[in-house]
């Protein structure tokens, strides 16, 4: 029994090691580990942790005022914002502020109308080609899943947003490229997006670059894994049940087999 357990544990660790080490990359420094209220979307030992919704809401403001000029989030709908603490009326107002393309109508024409909570987040570009054309040939990635779609998750997004520096001497930057410490290859097409007081928070939080990066990362983490809290909550109940069940079955098995040995 003990031998078996050790074996399983060793196997799981090996597997985990195999998958994570496959991602190590060249000369780019590892993103510094930050503390996240929810522990990180892929964090194992964060059973009781959940999102910091004040920060997630501020992060939505950063997304709306800064990122959404270029980046779509097509997997999210305005109604989802209800889950991060906006009221029904606020969600309706946020949605209605957007002009959404709809149609065709009875005359076969496309038209625009104010957004509804059931609408997806408005895409800043009509299609991928337009997005690429407006951004030097490469479309800005959709941000709906970005935290789960990058190794090191939240830490990487935060590091990238705060990682703009001057290129070191001798580093050849092609025109239109910007130097970023944490971007693979360092030459990133996105210009530095965040500046001190680039947004004005309504709750009085000082909008430093670091604060904005943390907030928007929290928002993007929630967007990528909106069921994180439900998952952990259900998981704890399942675990509790299983541990108890396993105990009962172990006792039952022991009692039954005691007649045999």
């Amino acid at each position: 029994m003990r031998r078996l357990r050790t074996l399983i544990a060793a196997g799981a660790m090996t597997i985990a090691g195999l998958t994570s080490t496959a991602l190590a990359a060249g000369d780019v420094p590892l993103p510094p580990a930050q503390t996240w209220a929810h522990g990180g979307v892929n964090s194992f030992l964060s059973f009781f942790k959940g999102y910091d919704y004040a920060s997630v809401q501020r992060g939505f403001q950063v997304y709306k005022e800064v990122c959404s000029a270029c980046h779509s989030m097509h997997l999210l709908s305005y109604r989802n914002l209800h889950d991060i603490g906006f009221t029904e009326a606020e969600v309706k107002a946020i949605a209605a502020a957007q002009e959404i393309n709809d149609g065709p109508n009875d005359q076969g024409e496309m038209f625009t109308r104010p957004g509804l909570p059931s609408d997806r987040f408005k895409n800043p570009f009509p299609n991928k080609q337009a997005a690429a054309a407006a951004n030097g040939g490469k479309a800005p990635p959709d941000l709906s899943l970005i935290v789960k779609a990058r190794a090191h998750h939240e830490d990487y997004i935060h590091a990238l947003l705060t990682g703009y520096t001057d290129a070191p001497a001798g580093f050849e930057l092609s025109p239109g490229a910007n130097y970023n410490k944490y971007f693979p290859g360092h030459a990133i097409a996105m210009a530095q997006p965040l500046y001190d007081s680039g947004v004005t928070y309504t709750d009085g939080t000082a909008a430093t670059i670091d604060q904005q990066a943390k907030d928007v990362t929290n928002f993007l983490a929630w967007a990528a894994e909106p069921k994180l809290e439900e998952r952990r909550r259900v998981g704890l109940m399942v675990m509790l049940f299983l541990v108890f069940f396993a105990g009962i079955m172990y006792a039952a098995k022991r009692r039954l087999w005691s007649e045999v040995h």
Partner: peptide, 20 residues
């Protein structure tokens, strides 16, 4: 009786778990 109880508890938990 204790043995019966353990078997009963095991079967009940299995049933509840499967239904849930």
């Amino acid at each position: 009786t204790r043995r019966d109880f353990i078997y009963l508890a095991g079967a009940a938990m299995g049933g509840v778990g499967a239904a849930a």
